[in-house]
Design a protein around this nucleic acid. Structure first.
Lengths: 259, 259
DNA sequence: CGCGATTTGTGCACGTGTTCACGAGCGCCT
DNA sequence: AGGCGCTCGTGAACACGTGCACAAATCGCG
């Protein structure tokens, strides 16, 4: 854990932890039923790249389920999720695959399994800090409930905003953080504050016991090792696109002298 | 290009294109001045992982520049950007490094170089499609101008919204897309529509000549090979955090029987 | 009941990305 | 001027992720 975890196309993702949690880290086969699947109730391991794709599979599966399909082939599902079918099969094999050869995967069963792995059985309570431009939009975004989350509380440091109601939720002062986090059993928080306030908010969240943070502020957050941070930065995404745009432009400008 | 490009911790990123643009793909040394740096005016190649980190370096550099520093060591900058210092040095080496051994990097010079590589010299015009909850927040977000972009036009399909002014910008009907894109020289678009409308909007954008898309709608977009798509999905980010949360919970619940 | 069509599961080779560790160059101080 | 300490640049080893290609397994049909 620790540090920003996004690293869009990372290859390994630092992750010095993992052994810090009690796993002996002896060269276990990692994937595929090592001896028996029984003793270990949960998955022994799961590549980070796979974890990042599971939500996409889940979304695609929900769409398929609504259209009435009850089984999918890896090819279909892979196409719907925008990935290679071999990759999809390998990803699903990490979850003790339940596909049927010659047939495909049972949609309902697969949905349930992925939701279980992602820990989405319980609707998780999320705190949203910073009710500015972006924060209000996130608070008003309805797509959370259907995907395993609900925003349980809104916070802001600006006294003018405290007391407002946004999407039916009361905006509370940041000083009430500890109390509300404890009462609502909040473990995940979203930071939508200006950059200069983000580290302070982070420290407060961590002190309250929050262990997962989604950061929209354009800055690096430093957190203890047991806290996960993911970052979403609009401008960075655009700049990456800009690079490719720039490259495409310079390439097409060249005389395409091949052979 | 082609397909969704995010793949948070991807290892390679499909990328069947690249040869589709005219590069012979002969095993060029890729990094580091092959013979002379002169003949090739632009960078010959650049790992995707590096490209994704350059914007973060750029942001950190701007902060350092404001604090008055005129040189940075790789260690300092790496810390500010939240990465390993060796990784940072290697990344910068791809840009024909301009660091001075024993001293560090010239902040101003490095900023200029990265901005050049990312194609941020020209302020790029961006179209924003979908002026709902999220779209309005994005339109109102002020952090664009300072980072190389400006929103040049807003579009929506809802006649009720067309004609509104948001952050000083007129909301136009999606049917005017082609005209405006041509006039404003727009190459990058942001999609903030509901999922069911996203593919249609994408097709329209591609038809107008847009070649880079940032997609906030929770769905996979299919586009031709020469178009880049990056995806940002709130719920997916939260679900990834949920997984780690889930795993942390089950791990600490186990008796930490080591040795 | 057996065969063929079909689709999963996965071993293996390859490409990409990360990290360490150390040589090369630069500035400063004596 | 010469040496010394500091920092960049990078080769090489390693870890991770991907995709092909094929064996194993299952269903349906004659």
């Amino acid at each position: 854990m620790s540090q920003q975890r996004n690293e869009r196309p990372a290859g390994s993702d630092p992750r010095p932890a993992r052994s810090a949690a009690g796993l002996p880290a002896n060269g276990s086969p990692a994937h595929g039923l090592s001896d028996r699947g029984a003793p270990v109730s949960e998955l022994p391991d799961l590549p980070e790249a796979t974890v990042a794709r599971l939500p996409e599979y889940l979304r695609a599966l929900h769409v398929l389920a609504e259209d009435g399909g009850d089984v999918v082939s890896s090819e279909e599902l892979a196409h719907a999720a925008g990935v290679n079918s071999a990759k999809l099969r390998k990803d699903l094999s990490y979850l003790r695959s339940n596909g049927t050869r010659g047939v495909g995967y049972d949609v309902g069963q697969l949905i349930e399994k992925i939701e279980h792995v992602l820990g989405l059985n319980q609707h998780r309570a999320v705190a949203l800090v910073g009710v500015g431009n972006l924060g209000q939009a996130l608070a008003g975004y309805g797509g959370f409930g259907s995907r395993g989350f609900h925003i349980a509380a809104l916070f802001d440091a600006d006294p003018v905003r405290v007391g407002d109601r946004i999407a039916g939720l009361l905006v509370r002062h940041i000083d009430d953080l500890a109390e509300v986090v404890a009462v609502e059993h909040i473990a995940i928080a979203v930071i939508a504050t200006p950059a200069h306030a983000a580290q302070g908010v982070t420290d407060a969240l961590v002190a309250c016991g929050v262990t997962s943070i989604l950061n929209f502020a354009p800055c690096v957050l430093s957190v203890p090792d047991n806290v996960d941070v993911r970052k979403v930065d609009l401008a960075i995404e655009l700049q990456i696109l800009s690079f490719h745009e720039h490259r495409k432009a310079t390439l097409t400008a060249l005389p395409e002298a091949i052979s």
